[in-house]
Structure formats: structure tokens, C-alpha cells
Design a protein around this nucleic acid. Structure first.
Length: 599
RNA sequence: GCCGGCGUAGCUCAAUCGGCAGAGCAACCGCCUUGUAAGCGGUAGGUUAUGGGUUCAAAUCCCAUCGUCGGCUCCA
């Protein structure tokens, strides 16, 4: 496949960014320009502007861009010396800073390191010349003015060079495509994402809520959301039991000293809540479960015959997130991990690691999350944020890559993505809208066992150090539920639906019959609601459909007489009348098999 | 945390230039007794996020705080 960076679309977007900068400078001649690269699905350009932008400004700039594009200006490249460049951009302090950097050969305009000899080049279209390494289209006529938009997304603040200690600039986002149809399709995708937004569906479907008085970033699970989450927990818990895991339970606070030993405290101090004093000792809310589990291990002497130990806990942890970073259920200040720690011998490492990968893939497939990729996160060169010796890191990294290869996973290796105590294998799923979410993680850890002096007695009667595998499949339940809500657009598979069956009597005289059906279904474990409210059947069908309830069972005189129900699916499909017993057989099969379909 | 937008009934939204806070849905009460995506009528629901200021008069203008949305950054 053609690399995005080499595609025509990339050049179009990069060039449109320049056109936008020209239009902005025409409107605000005193504006300072920073950088304007193409990004996934579009581009942006950062400006230092004399005043905040309004919607009218954006519309005006967009119109001006179309005019510039239609005029058909060529993009002219030229190479300049650093001094020439400084002269050219003497009124542009951000460009000067970039030029200085380029001259030093350190970084390119994206702030990335480069070893190549740096050639400073500019591109000029019409009246606008920008420091840029390109590439660009040959002429603005290659841009379709009707496939460009900058009004589709609000401008936003962005720090110069992403550094929160530097100037706050105004970032204008744009998108550009080759045809207006592609633009329309993209905008439609954004609309669909809005419709699927878990925050909106969470409210519409009564799953969860937030309260200012409780505190931001602290989700409150309503009954329908709680049952959904509980079903996911039960599903995994049962599966884990069948795979030799044992549950453990640990409290929500611990002494600060625990995290000093584990090494978490210094490394993650800015995402932890302030410690509090209890009887002269410092405690804190637990930011992670592993040190607790480690101490369960330490509570007795283990034999190699005990290993592997697989201990799992749905452990709630608390981490400080800056207020501006909170987002629905995906970024919260307290969340529950489906955490587990495996204590293994070196000989068991690969098999146990593969066992975790197998569980991950089983869960994904069960939920219809079939589009995912793996990522091996290793430490980066500098590495002052890591603990442990090189030998342990090398062993752990080799083990992960060997296991991933054996499993036949396609994966990428990315530097700087490791945990502070070890390398890891992450699973990233793509949801129904092709958005990526990092969900599962498996980590190999030689360090915590060392820091906590864990041991087991080997066959040789000597003390040995076990290796720990940290793993989470859902990651955080909150976040996972959010991803599922958006993936399914709120229409959960029947086994996960908070309400599986809505009973709709056609007239009041059918309510008694429906009560009997409800009792029968509930006794079999179905989650059932009877809509005995005033109103027409049509309205009740509409209501149940909007609540995305899988099955609507409707009964009037004909059904009562026949001991039947008329079955309608949320998709609108009418399965017609069937004896209640037949519906039960059919629905049980769908639910028990965790089918992703309703028939 | 920072930049910008927004905050009106449980939900979705209206209220012209600063001039009587309103509608639909939901809730509640009735009527209708219904056959596959909204039957009809009524009742109730508000310190317009909070606090201060300007004004004869503030949902509307100004300041602060809180929340929220879009980003930046980070995410064991």
C-alpha cells in the first residue's frame, strides 16, 4: 500500500494548509504562523492570533481559501541558506526558532530528530511563502475547492511544540479530500461517531451518569449500566476460573511505603492523589493493584510445585487526571481494572504468556471485536523512567517477541511504550468506526519480584525468583464499556443487553397474560420489562426500539388465545406469532451462545 | 492545568435590539382499548449553573467560580 506521506492526498492537505495560512494572514496581517502539517484525515495550522476566532471568521477564511485555490497558483520550491531564511521570516518568531533548529541539524519542523544534512527549503504559492520541506501539489488547481472544509471542527488551543510551558497558540483544523463526495462521506462518519458517542447513549439508555456534587470524573453506574458491566465481569470471571485463575481481593488504600518499595511512587507521583495521614502513617488511594497481590504472594513460602499462580481481581484504582482531560467513561479518576498477576518460573513464562494471549483473543472474538492489532512496547534509548537491570529487560523483551511470533500475531515494535518495570504486549482494537483503542495489555516483569524479594523453592531446594506477568483484558471496565457502547451503537448482543425483552400488551385486558409471560421468562433468567403504561402499541414499539431492546413481545386477543406472543426485533423485523415456549427455546439459544445476532 | 466554545424544566431546544421565561418529549391524572416506530385532553415542573456587578429593567452586557464540550499534554 502507498504510504500516506507519499500520497496525492497528503500533498493536497499539506498544500491546503498553506492556502489556509495565506488566507489567515490576509485577514490578520499581524498573526504569527507556527507549523501546519497534514494529519490523519486532514491538516492543521497553528497561529498566534490577535484575538479569538469566531465562526464567522472561519467561514470567511474558508471562502477566501476557495478563491485562492480556484485562481490556480503554482507551488514554487526553492532552497535557501539559513541566513536567507531568517531574513525572509524576520517577522515570524516561530519560523526563526525552526530555522535555528534546522541549522543546528537537530530537529525538523515536526520536532523530530534527523541525522540527514538539513536543506532549508520554502514553498511559495501566490503571495504566501512558507518554510517547508514539502512535498506539495504542483498547482492549487490540483486541490478541489469543494472538497475542503475548515468549519467542520472548532479551532482549539495548542501549545507551541506541545510544551505546556510554551506559548498557547490557536490551532485551526481543516480537512481536504479529492472529491466532494469523499468530504461528504467523511463528514457523515463524524456524524455517525456523534450518534454513537457513549456519553450520549449512556444517557439515552440510562446506563450511567455524573454528578457535580459527587465530583467530576467519577461515574455513577445506573442499574442498566451496572448490569451490563456485571455481565462482562461474570463472563470473564467464569472464563478465568476455567483457565486456572483464582480470585483475590484487596483494599482501596495502602501505605505510601508500599508504593515506594514497588517504585510506583516516584515514577508516577503526578498522577497519584495526595497521601493522607492516619495515626501518624501516610496512606494513599491505590493507583494499582500489583503491590497488593505481591504481598499475598509473600504471605507464605511457595514451592515451584505451586507455580504458576494466577491471581485475578476486579480492582478499583484511583488516578489523578487533569480536569481538562476527563472524558466520559474513557478518562475518569476512579476505575476498575480486570487485573491479574501470574507468578511463574522462567520455564513457564512462554506458555503462560501465550495462555493470556489466547484468553484475550477468545474474549475479543466472543464480543465481535475482530479487528485488532498488537504492539510490543519496549523501552526507549534514554530510559531514565525505567527500573531494573538490562538483563531482565532483555530477557523479558525476548520472551514477549518469541511468544508473539509463536502465536503468529502481526505486531509492531514501538520504543518508549514499555511500562516502567518491563516491556509489554498491548492489544489495540478498531471499533465499528475504525477508531483505535488500546484495550488489553500483557507485561513481563522481572523487577517487582526483585524489589519485593519474591522467591520460591525450586526442585533443587534452592531459592529462586519468580517472574510476574501483569495482564488486563478489558483494561478498565469503564473504558471498555464505553468502547462497546460505541462499537455496538448501543444495540448490544442479547446476552449483554440490560433489558432483553420488552412485553407489549395491545390492550389493558392483555396485561395479566403478559404478567404471566414475564414471570415465566424471569424465572429462566431473562431480563424483562412489561410496558403496561397508557398508550398505543405503536408508541410502545417505538419506545422499545429506541431503547435498542432486542426483543419486543406483543400480545393481543389472538396471541392470548393461542398461548403465543408476536415477536418483533429491534431491527424492525417481524418474526410473527409463536408459542411462548418456542420463543423461550429460540431466545435461550441466542443468549446462551452469546450470539452476536438475534436470529 | 492551559486556549476557545457552551450552560434555560429530567431530556431536546425556543425566547428579535436588554423589556411578562416558552414548546415538544418524559413524569403525573384522565379519556380511548388499541395489531407492529409517536392516539387525545389535562396537571405539575424554573432563584435561566453559582456568586457579584452595570441598568429603570438582565436568560441576554461585564467579572469571578463551578460544570461541560473541542483541542494541547499525559495515560503505570
Amino acid at each position: 500500500m502507498e504510504r500516506y506521506e507519499e500520497s496525492q492526498l497528503y500533498r493536497i492537505r499539506h498544500s491546503t494548509a498553506h492556502v489556509m495560512a495565506q488566507a489567515v494572514l490576509e485577514k490578520f496581517p499581524s498573526a504569527k504562523i507556527a507549523i501546519g502539517p497534514p494529519i490523519e484525515d486532514g491538516f492543521y495550522y497553528d497561529f498566534d492570533l490577535p484575538r479569538p476566532l469566531t465562526e464567522e471568521d472561519l467561514a470567511e477564511i474558508e471562502q477566501r481559501m476557495r478563491v485562492i485555490i480556484r485562481e490556480g497558483h503554482p507551488f514554487a520550491r526553492r532552497e535557501v541558506s539559513a541566513d536567507e531564511a531568517r531574513d525572509l521570516f524576520q517577522d515570524q518568531p516561530y519560523k526563526i526558532e525552526l530555522i535555528d533548529g534546522l541549522e543546528a541539524g537537530g530537529v525538523d519542523e515536526y520536532g523530530e530528530k534527523t541525522d540527514e544534512a538539513v536543506v532549508i527549503s520554502t514553498y511559495k504559492q501566490d503571495t504566501f511563502e512558507d518554510l517547508c520541506r514539502g512535498p506539495h501539489v504542483a498547482d492549487t488547481s490540483e486541490i478541489n475547492p469543494d472538497a475542503v472544509s475548515i468549519t467542520f471542527k472548532a479551532p482549539a488551543g495548542a501549545y507551541w511544540r506541545g510544551d505546556e510551558n510554551r506559548e498557547m497558540l490557536t490551532r485551526i483544523y481543516g480537512t481536504a479530500w479529492q472529491t466532494p463526495d469523499q468530504l461528504a462521506e467523511y463528514l457523515e462518519l463524524l456524524e455517525e461517531a456523534k450518534r454513537r458517542d457513549h456519553r450520549k447513549l449512556g444517557q439515552d439508555l440510562d446506563l450511567f451518569t455524573f454528578s457535580q456534587e459527587v465530583g467530576k470524573g467519577l461515574p455513577l453506574w445506573k442499574p442498566k449500566g451496572a448490569i451490563l458491566r456485571d455481565l462482562l465481569e461474570r463472563f470473564l470471571r467464569d472464563e478465568q476460573l476455567g483457565r486456572g485463575y483464582e480470585p483475590v481481593i484487596t483494599p482501596h488504600i495502602a501505605r505510601v511505603a508500599l508504593y515506594e518499595t514497588s517504585g510506583h511512587y516516584p515514577y508516577y507521583s503526578d498522577s497519584q492523589y495526595s497521601p493522607f495521614e492516619v495515626e501518624g502513617d501516610l496512606f494513599m488511594l491505590k493507583p494499582m493493584n500489583c503491590p497488593h497481590h505481591v504481598h499475598i504472594y509473600k504471605s507464605e513460602l511457595h514451592s515451584y510445585r505451586d507455580l504458576p499462580l494466577r491471581w485475578a481481581e476486579f480492582g478499583t484504582v484511583y488516578r489523578y487526571e487533569k480536569s481538562g482531560e476527563l472524558h466520559g467513561l474513557t478518562r475518569v479518576r476512579g476505575f476498575t481494572q480486570d487485573d491479574a498477576h501470574l507468578f511463574v518460573t522462567p520455564e513457564q513464562l512462554e506458555e503462560e504468556f501465550l495462555g493470556v494471549v489466547d484468553l484475550i483473543e477468545f474474549i475479543y472474538n466472543s464480543l465481535g471485536l475482530t479487528d485488532y492489532r498488537a504492539r510490543v512496547g519496549i523501552r526507549d534509548a534514554e530510559g531514565d523512567k525505567y527500573v531494573g537491570d538490562d538483563k531482565g529487560w532483555a530477557l523479558a523483551t525476548e520472551a514477549i517477541i518469541a511468544a508473539a511470533d509463536k502465536r503468529g500475531l502481526t505486531y509492531t515494535v514501538e520504543e518508549g511504550e514499555a511500562a516502567f518495570y518491563g516491556p509489554k504486549l498491548d492489544f489495540i482494537i478498531r471499533d465499528a468506526l475504525k477508531r483505535e483503542w488500546q484495550i488489553s495489555t500483557v507485561q513481563v516483569d522481572y523487577n517487582l519480584p526483585q524489589r519485593f524479594e519474591l522467591e520460591y523453592v525450586g526442585e533443587d531446594n534452592e531459592r529462586h525468583q519468580p517472574i510476574m506477568i501483569h495482564r488486563a483484558l478489558y483494561g478498565s471496565l469503564e473504558r471498555f464499556v464505553a468502547v462497546l457502547i460505541e462499537h455496538y451503537a448501543g444495540a448490544f448482543p442479547a446476552w449483554l443487553s440490560p433489558v432483553q425483552v420488552r412485553l407489549i400488551p395491545i390492550a389493558d385486558r392483555h396485561v395479566d397474560y403478559m404478567n404471566g409471560v414475564a414471570t415465566k421468562l424471569r424465572a429462566l433468567g431473562f431480563r424483562v420489562e412489561l410496558d403496561a403504561s397508557q398508550g398505543r402499541m405503536g408508541g410502545k414499539i417505538r419506545e422499545a426500539t429506541m431503547q435498542k431492546i432486542p426483543w419486543m413481545l406483543i400480545a393481543g386477543d389472538r396471541d392470548v388465545e393461542a398461548g403465543a406472543v408476536s415477536v418483533r426485533l429491534r431491527s424492525g423485523e417481524d418474526l410473527g406469532a409463536m408459542p411462548v415456549a418456542n420463543f423461550i427455546d429460540y431466545a435461550r439459544q441466542i443468549v446462551d451462545s452469546k450470539s452476536l445476532e438475534l436470529q
